[in-house]
Every structure is written in C-alpha cells, then in structure tokens.
C-alpha cells in the first residue's frame, strides 16, 4: 500500500527530540507526523493549576514543584507559581520528589505540598515518596496529585472517527514501567500499528521506519523499537509500587475533557496524604476558561500549531494563551522554538 501516512508521536519528549534534531526534514515525503498529548504540563487542567496556586498561596505552606510547572498559567493568564513566589510564596523547585521528604522533615512546623504531575513514568517516584512518608510518619507532607495515564488518551484518539492518525509511536519511558500489554490491547482493539519508540534521534528514526513498513504492508502490530530499555513486562516492581499507592480514576485533561481512567488517585490507605483532603475547599482563583486556544484539536491531531491564528503572534512562550505553548515539549512551543516562520 502507498501513503501518504500520518503517524502520531504520543510523547512530548519525542516531539521535542524530533524538532530538536530536525528529524522531520529527514523523513520520507509520504510521511506526516503529528504531535500527541503526551505532555503532562500541557494536559493538566487549568483548575488543577488554580488549585496549586491557591495552595501555594496559603500562609505557612512550602509548595514543591518540578521546574516544568512553575510557569504554567492557571485560568487567569499570566498567573503562575513563579509569579506567586515573586509575591512572597515559598515555592521550591525539586528535581526528584524524594527531596520533598527532606524539606518536610527539615520544616516540621510547616505544611509541605508536592505538586505530583506526570505519566506512569513519573508516578512510581511519587508512589515511593508516599510509601516513605507513611513509613516514617511524616505528618506535614501532602500530595497534590495530577498524574495521568497515557493509554486512555491514545484510545480516545484512536476511537475518534475524525482522527487522521494511522499509527502511533508509543512513549518508550512509559512502556519501560508499564510493559507492552496495554499497547497490545490497543492494537487488537483498533487495528492500527503501534511502535514503542525511544528518544534518541536514531531510535526515533528507527521507530518511524518500523511504523511506515507496517502501514505499507497493511499490517497492524505492536513493534518494540526501544528494546535496549523496554521489555514486554516493563518493570513489575514499579508497577506494583504504583498500584499499591494509586488507582485509576476518571480525570479531566486540558483540551480533551473528562477521560475515563485517564488519571490516578491515591488509594484509601494513602488518602491521608491527599492535599485536596487536607486543605479542603479553598477560594477559587478564577473561573476556568481556556480562551481562544485550540489545544484540544491540536492534542488530538486534528489541527496543527500553524493552523492557529494566535500562533506566534498573540500566543508565544512568554505569553502563552494555552498549554501547548507553555512547555518546551508542547507542540506549539517546540514548533516556535525550532522552526522558521
């Protein structure tokens, strides 16, 4: 069979690598890549960011976050964690969630909140933090959980009748934890090729080639083009850790709406660490409104960044109107950073 073929790279890290290495210029002419929703910064709904801002603004709270989330606006444009820090909030940048445990133990008189974002790659580290916190009985640490699951989003896109996606490059680091069973299920249910892809330029090119070959032969299989890291079984211990602390939950994604099983929540035994429970209802920061951003269509592969009238003019990384312009991994920011327009 002949193309043109449309593939979606699901993971934002892959979007970033593709543009950073200029791989789109090296692809066969019959191939089009569209950027998927695999960027937790981009898909965290504005109301969760508003919640984070409200918590970080509480007197006495030390609010811990990865650098990625510090400049993500909530529902009010320009309102972010760095701005809050400039106005006096104690917002700290972490590179591993385990640092939050040390912060909490160093400041027993204060409440320490960790903004826990990320896919199934990051969630085990949060789960480990939860286990350690409970084992040590650290009473002043809590988690604002925003973890999301990637396969439900892929299912939504695959099931969308309007979708242009004919094959997926699956996120290799998620598969390193989860293994390939749920991807195989996706292939079986939707009859389209899925290739587990790494993040290096050569690995990505290999994965793209494998996916294209399947399409040309009319096949729909699961391929693993990241075998140096990913095994069919993933990391069972990480998965058990994850399952002992979290359970799947229906959560809203920015741009995609409520996704059945699209997120994680703390299991009952760990609910004591839930920042939503500990702090109860806080005054809302503002109304939830995504403005003119077409991120929902971009995240589903129905529109490209250049289709947006605000792209690069009203909406820039310094003044993002929507999530895909915030993160380096977001489809819009990556395009604006690396491409001439």
């Amino acid at each position: 069979m002949t193309g043109p073929w449309t593939l979606m790279e699901v993971c934002g890290g892959q979007t970033h690598a593709l543009l950073r290495w200029g791989l789109d210029q090296l692809l066969p002419a019959d191939l089009r890549l569209i950027h998927g929703p695999g960027c937790p910064v981009c898909v965290t709904p504005a109301e969760r960011i508003d919640r984070a801002l409200a918590l970080a603004g509480q007197p006495g709270v030390i609010f811990c976050s990865y650098g990625d989330m510090l400049q993500v606006p909530g529902s009010r444009p320009g309102h972010d964690l760095l701005g809050l820090r400039a106005r006096g909030a104690d917002v700290r940048l972490l590179t591993t969630p385990l640092q939050a445990l040390a912060v909490a133990r160093d400041h027993p008189e204060r409440q320490v909140v960790m903004l826990a974002v990320g896919f199934e790659t990051t969630a085990p580290a949060t789960a480990l933090l939860a286990r350690q916190a409970l084992a040590l009985g650290v009473p002043n640490l809590s988690l604002l959980v925003c973890h999301v699951r990637v396969v439900p989003a892929m299912r939504l896109i695959a099931a969308d009748r309007a979708t242009a996606v004919q094959g997926f490059l699956a996120a290799g680091h998620v598969a390193a934890v989860m293994g390939t069973a749920e991807l195989q299920q996706l292939v079986d249910d939707h009859r389209l090729p899925v290739v587990v892809a790494g993040f290096g330029p050569d690995e990505l090119l290999q994965a793209v080639g494998a996916c294209r070959r399947q399409l040309q032969r009319g096949e729909a299989r699961l391929d693993n083009a990241y075998a140096s890291v990913v095994t069919a079984d993933g990391n069972p211990r990480a998965r058990r850790l994850l399952a002992s602390v979290f359970e799947p939950a229906d959560v809203p994604w920015r741009g995609l709406g409520l996704l059945p099983g699209g997120g994680l929540r703390l299991r009952g035994r760990y609910a004591v660490l839930d920042a939503d429970r500990r702090f109860g209802i806080l005054p809302p920061d503002a109304s939830n409104h995504d403005g003119p951003c077409i991120s929902g269509r971009i995240l589903r592969g129905l529109a490209r960044p250049l289709d947006c009238p605000a792209f690069g003019s009203a909406c820039t990384p310094d003044h993002p109107l929507g999530a895909p312009m915030v993160s380096d991994e977001g489809a819009c920011a990556a395009h604006l950073r690396y491409r001439r327009h």
């Binding site: 937790p40 990625d68 990320g118 990051t122």
Partner: peptide, 8 residues
Amino acid sequence: GDLLPRIC
C-alpha cells in the same frame, strides 16, 4: 533567561 530544570 531562567534555567529551570525540568523533568519532561
């Protein structure tokens, strides 16, 4: 202008 370490 700001070197903010990121995880993704």
